[in-house]
């Protein structure tokens, strides 16, 4: 009931649902959704969830996520789902998937790593734990945990 009061349905676009409570603004920031060309956008924070008690939701009109952006969502909130909306109906519903290897998305925080010292050496991280998320650099072996991921992603997009 409360949800209906807060947001309208979108005609066409993307709904990122089941975002871990409190993580929506981070996803908004990392996906630079403020630059979505004037699209209507709604963020629900700490709304009710039958599964987890509370969750966040992002609705974006006329905006679809690239595969790279889906990885960002998966890294911040591995249990999120992405719904594709057309003519007010959900035409596709998928859970974000964290791949075994993540390339060019996360920056290595080790300043001595070759990926920070050669323009052709793109980052490559292996996912060694999905809950909680833990990544290891395929080059220098440094590990990055969930707390470090937002700043590591932001660094690649700056």
């Amino acid at each position: 009931m409360e949800k209906d009061l807060l947001i309208n349905r979108i005609k066409s676009g993307t709904v990122i649902d089941h975002i871990a409570a409190g993580k929506a603004t981070l996803i908004y920031s990392l996906l630079s959704l403020e630059k979505s060309g004037g699209s209507k956008l709604a963020i629900l924070i700490n709304t009710d969830s039958n599964r987890t008690g509370s969750k966040d939701i992002i609705k974006i009109d006329n905006r679809w996520l690239t595969p790279e952006e889906l990885y960002y969502v998966a890294l911040i909130s591995p249990d999120a789902t992405v719904n594709i909306i057309k003519s007010y109906k959900v035409t596709e519903k998928k859970k974000v998937v964290l791949p075994e290897v993540i390339e060019k998305v996360v920056r290595c925080q080790n300043g001595r790593c070759i990926t920070n010292n050669d323009p052709e050496a793109h980052t490559k991280f292996r996912v060694i734990s999905k809950d909680p998320i833990k990544l290891v650099c395929a080059y220098c072996n440094i590990t990055i945990d969930a707390n470090q991921i937002p700043s590591s992603i932001a660094a690649t997009r700056s």
Partner: peptide, 26 residues
């Protein structure tokens, strides 16, 4: 090399066998 992971990176671009004779602190 003084860069960690440089030997692994070299092995991906070299086309020849690479021996790591010490890569940074790695």
């Amino acid at each position: 090399s003084r860069f960690d992971g440089s030997a692994r990176f070299a092995s991906e671009i070299s086309g020849k066998a690479i021996i790591n004779a010490g890569d940074g602190q790695n």
